[in-house]
Simulated assay, not measured.
Amino acid sequence: MESNDFTFVLDGENIHFEPGQTIMEAASHAGVYIPHLCYHPEFKPRGSCKLCTVKINGYFGTACTLPVQPGMQVESDCDEVNLMRRRVVQMLFIEGNHYCPFCEKSGNCQLQAVAYHVGMLDSHFPHFYPLRQIDASHPDMLLDRDRCIQCELCVRASRETDQKNIFGLAGRSTHTHLVVNSESGLLGDTDFSINDFAAHICPTGALIPKTQAFNIPIGRRIYDEQDIAKVGHLQPDESLQSNQQGEAK
């Protein structure tokens, strides 16, 4: 098969892909954003949040896990898929306690940015108002489980990148919750560090560095003026650096 045969159709556009790439990888390489929360290019995808669901030749599947095939017809930006994604995001909001105006992650939060991107205007479903444990035992980091969406990114980052295995998930269904692997169950009783990859990968405000809430002022944060489709996986410190470079020009 010639290289020019490695194309598929995404929302009516022909997209080139490399053999072995998933729909998400091929779309990202082509500069096309597919909403996601549990996916990160550093780790093997699991498709657990279902936010990247697309329609493939008339059937639904997760873009982060499905390999591209030549001639594949993929719909991502259509009314049916967008409504499905909006409902997924709404469910994530009502299953936790996400008070964006009072959250220090506001403007840097991927969940908040995705909600704007999919056009979420209300929560649609009744709120659960869970009461989960807040762990402030660590000198540098705060763990607020009320904002956790069980994406497992911190679990995978700690295990696969940091080689520490600090986090895990316990429970089932809506009772699933983040746990800390220490005898006391407290983050302060582990060797977790603010320099760990896991400390900066959370897409919400569940893991927050202490004493750094306004290092990046409101109005200059990643998603304050840009849609998430334009900035992808930038971290807050990258956003500040980018803004500073822009001001220097």
Rank of each mutant, 00 (worst) to 15 (best):
I228V: 13
E160C: 11
I15E: 00
M1D: 11
Q241H: 09
F102C: 06
L51N: 03
R145E: 12
F60E: 05
I134M: 09
D196K: 07
A115Y: 01
H175E: 13
E75R: 15
L10F: 12
L66R: 04
L169Q: 08
T176F: 07
G58E: 02
G205I: 03
L178W: 01
Q90W: 01
N108D: 15
E25H: 00
M24E: 00
C78M: 13
C64K: 01
Y33Q: 02
E2N: 14
N165E: 12
L186R: 14
N82Q: 10
Y116V: 08
C202V: 03
A206R: 04
L131F: 08
Y59S: 14
I228F: 02
R85F: 01
H124K: 09
H16F: 04
A115P: 02
L92R: 02
H40S: 06
F60T: 05
S173M: 14
G185H: 06
C202N: 00
C109P: 01
G188Q: 09
G185R: 09
R172G: 10
T174P: 11
S123T: 11
D237P: 07
H16L: 09
N57T: 05
E2F: 12
G107T: 06
M1N: 08
S28M: 04
T176E: 11
I134P: 02
G12H: 06
Q69T: 15
L142Q: 12
S158H: 06
L83W: 13
L240W: 07
C148L: 05
V68N: 00
I208H: 10
V32D: 07
Q69F: 14
G96C: 09
S239R: 00
I201M: 02
Q245K: 10
P217G: 05
K164W: 07
K249A: 13
C202P: 02
E152H: 14
Q150A: 15
K44E: 14
I201P: 00
S28C: 04
P203D: 09
L121E: 13
Y129K: 12
D191Y: 09
F214I: 13
K230Y: 13
S242E: 13
H29L: 04
M120D: 02
Q163V: 12
H16V: 10
Y129F: 09
I216M: 10
P41V: 03
S239E: 01
S137W: 09
T176G: 12
T161I: 14
E238S: 11
V89W: 00
I216N: 15
I218S: 15
G219P: 08
V54T: 14
E13C: 09
P236E: 01
C103D: 01
G205Q: 03
H29R: 15
A206D: 04
L234T: 05
L83I: 08
Q112S: 02
Q110W: 07
C154I: 11
D189W: 04
C64N: 03
S3R: 13
M24F: 03
